[in-house]
Design a protein around this nucleic acid. Structure first.
Length: 424
RNA sequence: GGAGAGAUGGCCGAGCUGGCUGAAGGCGCUCGCCUGCUAAGCGAGUGAGGGGUGAAAGCUUCUCCGAGGGUUCGAAUCCCUCUCUCUCCGCCA
């Protein structure tokens, strides 16, 4: 959510910035409602003031045995009037809130202007793309041949777009989770948390999934609860409605959770393999920082995610999402894309974003500056570190051998009980 | 599922026979003093959000004691609903 005061004072600016995102937001309704709100508020406050003063007077009169029934009668009317105005104010404020909740974040000045994903500049490319003296296979074929992936059985259990890992595959998935958590906690200073995998509407609203993107979520029948689409949601809400100590910042958390996404509207896309599933595992990085340093923190967040790919020796590139491709809540996002040899393209494996105060304002996460009164909104950031399923796919494809076996990256071997290769 | 207790400021904790209580007291924090250093001690200050006015400091006003509703001239205090936490019983991973 944008700061209402900022929007009020920069209507044109906000409108222009949103246009760069390809959003044709009409702020006319906002202005109209906002002006009306102010007028009503003034009137209500006036009446309330009068009621407060007179009530005190009544108390004094009664104490002295003076009859106050005239004033009491008058205040009865004032009370009714306040109640009526309050109702109208409430409706008014609801409308304003709805408008604000549906406005996306404003892109940071360092975000390139562009219309869509074809205009995202490449920041860097890292690692050596493997050469094969045979035609590399897609990861689902490799996995099925090795007996470590079985989508057919998964669809029997549930339906399309669910994975079933078996044997060394299940173990490799678990190894990746443990490896990533270990690196982030031991080397990058994150605190490990294991949050609920089901969250309420308020938490979803705070991080920006609601109210606009409900169709992307799985909702529990009969409950106002949702399955988490990313650990970002539960972890960011750890500090909802809190005033943090300035000294406590920055706060780093890392969390493993499964992620559940409806993938509405992606029919026909990535129909095979692990790339687009309704359920996948992910290790997430979340930061709460002082506004002054949040862009430095974005760079280190990106670094922390990159380390994982480097250690796994997977080639990747980093792109800077342009204004037209930026997520709803984000002010700036780097995507890390891993090399998939069979398709010969880079695919997103991590998304590292600075939300500035957009989520923190919704979630009411503030901090207090030492020696200063008042509070300020913290900045929140998060990034995948990394998506496990896609990492699994990348390992299978990049480490595949001519005979159909797959080598296990060196850093994972100790997590696999010393296993160096997966053979049929 | 059954029975009970509770939810107050950054934290702990009074108030809950309705009326200068936005809230005692303590801790913490900030500033000052004091003391070889540290600790202790002394003094002062210290909730959040919004509106009006002002260049600003400030002044002024409204709201907020889990959430929502009700009673009343007036509610942290009374009534109703909901949520959450805790204790006991039952059941169960």
């Amino acid at each position: 959510m944008l700061d209402i005061k900022f929007v009020r004072q920069n209507v044109d600016k906000v409108q222009n910035m949103l246009a760069m995102r390809g959003e044709a937001a009409d702020l006319g309704t906002f202005e109209k409602n906002d002006n009306h709100r102010k007028a009503v508020l003034l009137e209500i406050e006036d009446l309330r003031h009068r009621r407060n003063v007179v009530s005190e007077q009544i108390a004094r009169m009664k104490k002295n045995g003076i009859d106050a029934s005239d004033l009491m009668a008058e205040m009865r009317d004032v009370g009714a009037k306040i109640k009526a105005l309050d109702k109208s104010l409430e409706k008014n404020e609801d409308q304003i809130k709805q408008i604000l909740l549906n406005l996306p974040n404003i892109p940071h000045s360092s975000v390139p202007v562009g219309k869509d994903s074809t205009e995202n500049p490449i920041v860097k490319q890292v690692g050596v793309i493997p050469e094969f003296d045979f035609d590399p296979l897609p990861h689902w074929t490799i996995g099925e041949n090795l007996g470590i992936l079985d989508f057919k059985t998964a669809s029997k259990i549930t339906g399309a777009r669910f994975p079933l890992y078996l044997g060394a595959g299940a173990k490799l998935e678990r190894a990746l989770i443990n490896f990533m958590l270990d690196i982030h906690t031991n080397q990058h200073g994150y605190q490990e948390v294991l949050p609920p995998f089901i969250v309420n509407e308020e938490s979803m609203t705070n991080t920006g999934q609601l109210p606009k993107f409900e169709e992307d979520l799985f909702k529990l029948a009969g409950w106002p609860y949702f399955l988490v689409p990313t650990a970002e949601v539960p972890v960011t809400n750890i500090h909802k409605n809190e005033i943090l100590d300035e000294d406590a910042l920055p706060i780093y958390y890392t969390a493993y959770t499964p992620c559940f996404r409806s993938e509405a509207g992606s029919y026909g896309k990535d129909t095979r393999g692990l790339i687009r599933q309704h359920q996948f595992n992910k290790v997430e990085l979340v930061k709460f920082t002082h506004p002054k340093i949040s862009y430095d923190e974005l760079e280190t967040l990106l670094h922390d995610a990159e380390v994982i790919l480097k250690m796994l020796e997977l080639p990747y590139q980093v792109i800077n999402l342009c204004t037209g491709d930026l997520g709803f809540s984000s002010a700036k996002t780097y995507d890390i894309e891993v090399w998939l040899p069979e398709q010969g393209i880079y695919r997103e494996i991590s998304s590292c974003s600075n939300f500035e105060g957009f989520q923190a304002r919704r979630a009411n996460i503030r901090f207090k500056r030492k020696g200063k009164k008042g509070t300020e909104i913290v900045h929140t950031l998060n990034g995948s570190g990394l998506a496990i399923g896609r990492t699994f796919a990348a390992i299978l494809e990049n480490y595949q051998q001519k005979d159909g076996s797959v080598l296990i990256p060196k850093v994972l071997q100790s997590y696999m009980g010393g296993m160096e290769i997966i053979t049929p």
